[in-house]
Every structure is written in structure tokens, then in C-alpha cells.
Design a protein around this nucleic acid. Structure first.
Lengths: 281, 281
DNA sequence: AAGAATAAATCTCAATTTGAGAATAATTTG
DNA sequence: CAAATTATTCTCAAATTGAGATTTATTCTT
């Protein structure tokens, strides 16, 4: 069968005959008035916003993620990525931004927010059919100190029904021997401690970050405007999970960053480091 | 403010007091029985499946995409990406696969299908709030000839209300001077001729393909099991929109492909080409 | 049937990029 | 003031890339 014939065949196949072939054509207005969205049962839709920061450690820096300990069934007391239902009058992006604002108090305008993936398995939530769109927010390490007290939003989370207080905590996040690791001062989480398919969501986000760090500027979304080269390198090492060769890293980054005139004066031995900033344009 | 203090502050902020702080804890079963999904108004959710093939041209090969001319308001007679509502009892992936099967007759098991992006603006559909998850299906050029007549599925598309026949047609697709171009034997489509935000969907899919072709094996999803090097190269050129240097292309692809013992004997001048296949493992 | 044309496949080589370490610079620490 | 420490620059071999020339195996033309 040639490509030409195949196409003919497909066209024919699509043609459908309704009972009233000669019905007067509906105007768009008439059509809309007849349309009834309640006729079908719909899945619920939520956004889950993975909120990441960097955290300076002694030996190496670490990515951190904000998790919520659920106060509700299902997955009572398991740790979850902050999420909410998507309202009928807000875009999915807006819903993710609102969740970010509610959980951090930060103005979403200032924060990098990227859609990652939509999770659509039938049984991912035992209550009912829920489709979740995951987003990743990247917050510069220093920003919290400035923004937290202002911009508060103490609205109760959508979904209601909370019977126990929800707790929020930051967890360090990394991959060890191929599997996800989450821990903080209180201890380590196993996959058992996570709600829904949220372990997979976190893995996917880390994977995406790892890829994009090479050909986009997402790393800079996790840093303040001015930073030293070793801050930048430590961030890359945190994202990639491996040590980098400093002179070569510097050489490679020269296309992304430019010098400032400022010098960082630390309380430690060693040559003082110059501050750099992201190259614009 | 230190990182330690910040975290404390966040925890406090999340803690919420309900009226009945000492209520008996609900079991999961009790909770589920109380939960009523009809309490909230939900957006509708659809999948849109972008179906691509390659098409051999005289000078160069071309990507093709299957479009449907709408028989319904809104966007009556505009061209759209095939889509359907996501059923309550099917996963989002399954819905995309079903749409693929309905429009091509091919068994989705055999076809590469990847989720691309979720489109969530409030007004993207004038009827009602619809969130659409786009998928991209990549069909080997040769596969249609084999599979079309079998595996038919003549189910009417979900959504009903069709007042005019829907037509399906393949359109060549490319980027010229930064903007999307769609055309076939019947002529060229402008952005005006496309329904919804489907122009943007196609652009995103092409962009994704362009990126992934370098570090994944998606290109091979568009080819038969055996192919010559020039078929492979023409495909890359179609996806990337630029000519490649044959000797270097061959050198670079050596990590992806391996020789077969078969030689292609064409009805044309020139050295016969060897068939290659994708390297496994 | 010979030479031209065509397309596949290999070869060459300079230019660029990468990987790894040595050397130098500017501090603080002991 | 010497040693330690961190930032920064320098060096250089190895690997990769980019571009073209060459060889091979056919068909096409006359």
C-alpha cells in the first residue's frame, strides 16, 4: 500500500454519518448553550509542587525538599509533596504557584517554577480518581531568610477534612546506589514513609534537574544573584551527586557567568573568592 | 536568620488547630466512606495524542503529523490534534494509547508513546474548563502499510455531539524561520486553521524531539527494524531541520547501530547500501 | 562495453574540546 | 614567619569534532 492510498483510506475511515445528515448547522453560541459539562463524571485534578533549596553543609552542599506530613487519610502521617486541587477558575500553573506561596510565604513571581509530569494511574489515590500534575520550584538558599516573615498566607489548604495538624519539614535529598534517600536531623525516611507515588515524583524531579543543569540555567535559580565559584561548584556537585574538577568546571562555566568587582572575605584560611553573577543576554 | 531557625518557624506556621483537637482518630475505612468526590466541581481532562511518522520525499524526508478536521463546535472545521476525554477507569497513558489505536488502527503496544506536557490555562477551551495532557506517538514509516486494515476500532470518539463528519489528514510539519509550517497536497495551514492551542502543542513536540534525538533512541522509533544509513540520516535531517555531514554522522551513530548482513539493492545508480539495525543492550 | 554519474563507505587531518594535574596567588592559622 | 588552605591560572596530552578528499560498487549514457 502506498502512502497516498493509505491516506485516502484513513480519510474514509474517519468519516462518520449521524442520523440527521442534513441538520441545520449550529452556531457556536447555540452549541455552547446546549453543552452540559455535568453530563460526564470527571477525575479530580491536583498539582503537587516539589519545593527545592540548597543547603550548605560542612563537606558538601545538599539539595533540600519541603515535605508535608499528612494529617489526613489516606496515608495518614506519611510524608507527601505539598499539593492542592486545581480550582475551576485558576490555571494549573497558578495552582502550583499558589501552593508554593502557601507553603513558603514567598512571592511566586520571584521563584522558578517548572511543570514536570502528570501522574495519571487509576489507583494512585485510594479515595477517588485523582490526576496530579507535578511542578518543581527552585528557591535560592538565601531567599528564605529575607522573605519568610512577609507575604504570609495562612489560608487552610484546599481539600479540608484535616483531623490532625500537618507538619512541614525540609529533608535532604539525594540518590545513593541508584535509590532515593531522604533524611534530616530527625532521621531518615524510607519509601514506606512516603505517601502516594511521591517517591517516584521526587526521583523524576532530580533526574530532570540533573539533565537540565548542563544545557539550561536552572542551577542559577537555586543561587543568589552574587555567588562565588565554589558555591556554584558545590551546587552542581549536589545536583549531580559527584565531585567535579575545579579548574575545568571554572573553564566550562565561563560562558554562563561574569565577574563582579566584589570579593568575598570569609573567616577562614585561603585566598578570598571573587563574586560572580549570571551572564545576561 | 539561620537555616535552623527558619525551619522551626516553618513548622510552626504549618501547624493548624481545628475545632475538635481531641476528636477520635478516623480509620482509613471510615474516612473513605465519608469522602464525597461530587462535592467539588472538577475540570474535564483530555489527552491529545500527536501522531508522527516519517515520509520519504524526493530531496529530503519529512515528518508528518495526523490532524483531524473538527466536525463540532468549538473550532468547527479547524484542524486539531486527535484527543479524547480521560475515562474514570483508564489511566491517562491508556487514554492516549486508545486514542492512538482509534485513529491509526495500530496496536499501541508496538508504538512509542511519550507524555509531553499538560496544558492548563483556564480559557483554552471556550466550552468549559478542560485540562489537556499531550502525548507524542512515533510510528515507523513502514508500519502503516502492514497494520492499517487489521485492528480497526470504529468506536465513535468520546465527546459525542458530532454534527459533521470529522476528516483526518496527514500534514507535513516543519519549522521555517522560527515558525511552524504545516502543509500537504491540499495546501498549507495557517495558525488560524488550527484549533485550541494545538499549534503550541506541535511546536513543543518538535522541540522535544529535536532535543531527545541526541541523547535517546527516539529516532529509531520512527524507523523499521532494518534501515540504511541514509534513511537514518534523512530522518535526523527531517527532525533537526538541517543537513548533516554524512561521514561524521556515520561515525557518531556507530555507538547506536550495528551492521546486518543484508544489502539493500535499489533501482538507482550508486553503491548499494548496507542495512543496519539498532544496537541492543 | 567503456566512461560518466551516482551514492555508500572509508580515510585524513587540522581545530577544538576535554580531562587531569601542576603551578601560582592570596589569605588565615599555628 | 612557615604551614595550611582555598582560589585561580596554566599546561599539555588525549579525545572528539568538523570538513573535506578518496575509494568502492553500483547504474546510466552513449
Amino acid at each position: 500500500m502506498t502512502y497516498g492510498k493509505m491516506q485516502e483510506d484513513n480519510k474514509r475511515k474517519r468519516r462518520k454519518t449521524t442520523g440527521e445528515t442534513n441538520a441545520r448547522e449550529l452556531t457556536e453560541r447555540e452549541f455552547l448553550s446546549k453543552y452540559n459539562p455535568e453530563k460526564y463524571e470527571h477525575p479530580s485534578v491536583t498539582v503537587d509542587t516539589l519545593i527545592f533549596t540548597v543547603d550548605k553543609g560542612d563537606e558538601e552542599d545538599r539539595l533540600r525538599i519541603l515535605l508535608i506530613q499528612r494529617g489526613d487519610h489516606p496515608f495518614l502521617r506519611k510524608w507527601a509533596i505539598p499539593g492542592r486541587f486545581v480550582g475551576m477558575r485558576e490555571s494549573v500553573d497558578q495552582a502550583a504557584a499558589r501552593e508554593l506561596k502557601e507553603k513558603t510565604g514567598l512571592n511566586p513571581e520571584d521563584i522558578y517554577l517548572e511543570q514536570l509530569y502528570t501522574w495519571g494511574d487509576v489507583d494512585r489515590d485510594p479515595r477517588t480518581r485523582i490526576i496530579s500534575i507535578s511542578y518543581m520550584a527552585l528557591i535560592p538558599g538565601e531567599m528564605f531568610a529575607r522573605g519568610t516573615r512577609e507575604n504570609r498566607d495562612s489560608t487552610a489548604p484546599a481539600g479540608g477534612n484535616t483531623k490532625e495538624p500537618e507538619k512541614a519539614a525540609w529533608y535532604w535529598v539525594g540518590i545513593r546506589a541508584g535509590s532515593l534517600r531522604l533524611w534530616n536531623e530527625d532521621g531518615e525516611l524510607t519509601l514506606e514513609d512516603l505517601a502516594f507515588d511521591h517517591g517516584r515524583m521526587i526521583r523524576l524531579a532530580l533526574e530532570r534537574m540533573k539533565n537540565k543543569v548542563f544545557y539550561t540555567d536552572i542551577a542559577f535559580k537555586l543561587l543568589p544573584d552574587k555567588f562565588t565559584f565554589s558555591e556554584l561548584q558545590r551546587l552542581y556537585e549536589a545536583i549531580l551527586g559527584e565531585k567535579l574538577h575545579a579548574p575545568n568546571f571554572r573553564r566550562d562555566m565561563e560562558k554562563w557567568v561574569e565577574q563582579t568587582q566584589e570579593i568575598h572575605r570569609p573567616q577562614r584560611a585561603g585566598k578570598p573568592a571573587r563574586y560572580y553573577r549570571q551572564k545576561r543576554g
